[in-house]
Design a protein around this nucleic acid. Sequence first.
DNA 1: TTGTAAATGTAGCCAAGGCTACATAGTATA
DNA 2: TATACTATGTAGCCTTGGCTACATTTACAA
Lengths: 152, 152
Amino acid sequence: MFELAADGLPKRGELPAEPTQADRFGKARTAQSTAVMEDYVELISDLIGSGGEARPTDIARRLGVSHPTAIKTIARLKREGLAVAKPYRGVFLTEAGEHLADRVRARHRVVVDLLVAVGVPRDAAEQDAEGIEHHVSDATLAAFADYLRRDR
Amino acid sequence: MFELAADGLPKRGELPAEPTQADRFGKARTAQSTAVMEDYVELISDLIGSGGEARPTDIARRLGVSHPTAIKTIARLKREGLAVAKPYRGVFLTEAGEHLADRVRARHRVVVDLLVAVGVPRDAAEQDAEGIEHHVSDATLAAFADYLRRDR
DNA sequence: TTGTAAATGTAGCCAAGGCTACATAGTATA
DNA sequence: TATACTATGTAGCCTTGGCTACATTTACAA
């Protein structure tokens, strides 16, 4: 069942060959660590797009976290070049942040649509997509899009 | 728009109404926090099932983490009543741990199959399932199973 | 039996992402 | 304008899940 060396290691010095189970878990962990950033960026983009302003308190409320948590994460967003903000002014996205937001939004839509298309109830689809979307690779996303195109 | 108290709690005594965006994010976060436990439990079960023993070093290697990390997480498993282990002996699952492992394993299989069924390449499916599975609710899992039943 | 290598365990560090409590800045209103 | 409420920000703490470095067991081979 497991096509790994008996010890699970690809023996250094040999070809990397196919991804090991360890690689897969590692990737899943990485994805999880970008998930929060993605959620913030998408939400900020939504807030600005619909109301004109993204304030830390609104962000916190929408995400269901305390405002210090939101502020701390916004600081990280700034550190990573995704957002800019001056004290007591709202938060804005950099170009990179906007691009990320667009990709995240598109992916979210595809994931929800795919779930619904295979028969998942709408509310469960919306709920689960929130977690699932961050783990959908480009290959999988493309396959989802193809499926939806064929399906309709 | 937000029928929550300012503190994010749905004020007992009032109607729960529909889940808010904050609820959804919160659930996604919770799921993520159980993901590691699930991975460990499944792996331990696999190791015992196939080789008879689950040693911290093997677990660490398979998961792609250092052995202290594995040991620390195993301690948490013990704390939560999912595993038992005595120093320098292997790790074993409690009944609760076994049940969890079974559920996780079954869910993993369904998720991979579903992905493949909608056209995701096998390797991407295996890779992404590792992260996705932890966010698949019972409702969604049931829908996946139905789809697969119809599909074949 | 003794020595050594591998496995296991411990200590202590880090960043992320939560939180509460408290301080300060802005805003709106009496 | 003075005041009070709300938003924002800061400090400091917690847990998880990583890590490296070091100590201790265990197991195996001379």
